[in-house]
């Protein structure tokens, strides 16, 4: 059971959270099928650091964004929706 750092509650077991997947902006132009289907279906799916949305559904009920390493499951940053994204690009990552 990995721990996920909820920005409100602190580290909690991952089974308290709903995984909402890779963070991808919703296209503003909804008439472009290619664009829209890329938003719906195409995934980066990296083996490394990935930015995704989680909802602490079994806890405080709040959504947050996290930068998690998809191989080690380490989370190096979390932030609330709408807040400035942390700049982690300078840190070592694989």
């Amino acid at each position: 059971m990995i721990l996920l750092p909820c920005p409100h509650c602190g580290k909690r077991n991952s089974n308290e959270f709903s995984y909402l997947g890779e963070s991808a902006p919703r296209p503003t132009e909804t008439g472009d099928a290619k664009l829209w289907r890329a938003y719906l279906y195409t995934k980066e799916n990296p083996a490394g650091w990935t930015r995704e949305t989680w909802l602490h559904s079994g806890g405080c009920g709040k959504a947050f964004l996290a930068e998690r390493h998809s191989v080690t499951n380490e989370v190096r940053a979390t932030w609330l929706p709408g807040r400035k994204e942390p700049d982690t690009t300078t840190e070592a990552g694989s």
């Binding site: 509650c9 909690r12 089974n15 308290e16 559904s57 079994g58 806890g59 405080c60 009920g61």
Partner: peptide
Amino acid sequence: AFRSRVAGVS
């Protein structure tokens, strides 16, 4: 006070 799962119930 905290919210968490108790025997599988939030």
